[in-house]
Design a protein around this nucleic acid. Structure first.
Lengths: 193, 193, 193, 193
DNA sequence: CATGAATGAGCCTTCATTCAT
DNA sequence: GATGAATGAAGGCTCATTCAT
């Protein structure tokens, strides 16, 4: 019963992702998402409060899964250096492998109301915190500088990675982001030491 | 005649900046901008092709002035290190001193159509290139690593700075960005060496 | 079996009255009535043809009980004057004592479709006829003028009483309608003589 | 210029009256009113705040004209009796001659939200007050009883007249209301003496 | 050059009713 | 008999742009 509800919930999210990727944020009407999901317009509102709620849920769901992936990957690392490398690797490779997701999160969802952007900000926070935890771990390990401003630095790292993905998309995905992991990690680690 | 045209052109841009800062992107109708500028709605269309053209022009004008400021400031520097420091200083201090401008460029103008965002991307390009030129200069001076991927690194630096400003705005401008210049430059320079 | 059906039928009517009094006509969805009655949405349709049928039934049921009350009260009167006084007394006191009912019949149910209003008109008819019977009785008793247009006068009396209740509700029930019975009856009786 | 605005304002009100009379309250979409008035949908909103505002304005305009008519007619009367007779005459004859208006005010506009009904109540108030002024004049002239409750009696008279018109409409306008003036006035005057 | 009244396309959401379980 | 998830039609309002004056 609950699994059936969950199932339809995800069907609608999948449909929303596809529709937004194909039609852009402003071209994605609720009716289009409903059609893609194979349900009636009204059904959408049994699972989501309103259109904005679909978008927020989409972002939370996708980002939540990524953060889970980050967490489990980092657990197996023996040094903060390795953990940071994992973060960069996953961040860039995951979005490279999910172009629809990358397009929706980097380009389309940002064209939204302030309200929605705040909700998205909340969903991103756990990831930013995760980065900071790695920084703290590095300091404790004695591997990173003790005088780092961890709150500032987590922003520098997140912003840099975020821009790499956006630029890659806008350029038309003409190159491989995976190849950029090494240089990116290198830049960060030198900055941290 | 032309100077009169130029005058009204800038009046409209000033009005647009003020209206967007006060009402947000979605609350900024052409009629509101016209009223703020003291002209009729139709007059707007004697100076701009359409609404998008106002926004693009606004971004180009403001960013153009910033790039001029960057260029002249860098001209007087004796090392690439100093030039990069100047860039960070100006980037953060200028936007800290022009909250309206910061708000409009970092938050509001990003809620726009893909079309507009591409145009904004073009306007940002000269600034990104400027950063790259400093990187090249540093390599030539022997101050920065020769194996830097300058195209990647310029993105890392721009993205990091961009995120610092956005976070500062979203946090409610509770702290001073100027105080963050030192740590930020430090992080970059270590990454570059 | 039938009594069980009757029981649930009345539970739904009671729920409808309460929901309409609390939420107004336009705020009274079938689902809300079902919830208040403690049954599923679909169950409503086992007892009523459609939503309109609930409202008509509600009106008929409540008015029917009132008309019964009118009839039994009038039966015990010895003159037409006394009968008319009884009518006014019951009309105003009953609605004063049942604010929910008054609100629903005078304000909310009138915001309905023509279809529904016609059905309501039919339900009111017996009451109007009752008034006319008292008028005829008065003429036969020689107490009222013989030249009365009974069909017109029954409307004048009903309309006047109806307006008294509506005004009382709209004014916020700041005074007692019972205190107005005397003057009202007085006005009618003089008009009838 | 202002007269042109006034002209279009009235064109829209005329269109609204016609559309509502033909299609009923719930069948009167803004687009239908716009089409009937020969303007674009959006134009409606240059003259009215929203759909409700059209209806309120319609009621105010029509009732305002009626109240003007009442006032000027009463001015020429020499006794309160004559004034009351004028009120009944105009009330019934005007609505008999304007079936569309009668239908809209007595039937359709009452199927509206509480908000709208309150606004309508305000528009009716001046007319109710006018009736009361005649009552007071009658008392002062020594023609009506001094112990009349004028606030109650004005409601009785208004409610009675209102019901006469509604009944006439619902019955299918099968008889003449003008013929009922005499009996109606007679009933009222006896009640007042 | 400037005006501003007029245009009209476009979309989210509600809720009475149904029907498979 | 009872359930409640699913349906899908329907409409008020905004606002960028035009064009007659």
């Amino acid at each position: 019963m609950t699994s059936r509800k969950q199932e339809k919930f995800e069907m609608i999210l999948d449909a929303a992702e596809k529709v937004i990727a194909e039609n852009g944020f402003h071209g994605s009407q609720v009716s289009k998402i409903a059609k893609e999901a194979g349900v009636a317009d009204g059904t959408i509102y049994l699972y989501f409060k309103n259109k904005e709620d679909i978008l927020i849920s989409l972002f939370q769901d996708r980002l939540g899964k990524l953060v889970d992936l980050f967490n489990s990957s980092i657990r197996d690392t023996s040094t903060a250096d390795e953990a940071l490398r994992k973060i960069c690797e996953i961040h860039l490779s995951q979005l490279e492998q999910n172009v629809d997701l990358a397009y929706v999160t980097q380009i389309e969802l940002r064209q939204s109301s302030l309200e929605l952007r705040k909700a998205i900000g909340l969903a991103v926070k756990p990831y930013i915190v995760l980065i900071e935890q790695v920084l703290i771990r590095g300091i404790e390990e004695g591997s990173f500088r003790a005088d780092l401003d961890t709150k500032l630095t987590r922003q520098l790292i997140f912003g840099a990675l975020d821009e790499v993905v956006t630029s890659w998309l806008i350029s038309g995905m003409k190159y491989s982001m995976t190849e950029q992991v090494e240089h990116t990690v290198d830049f960060f680690l030198r900055g941290l030491k």
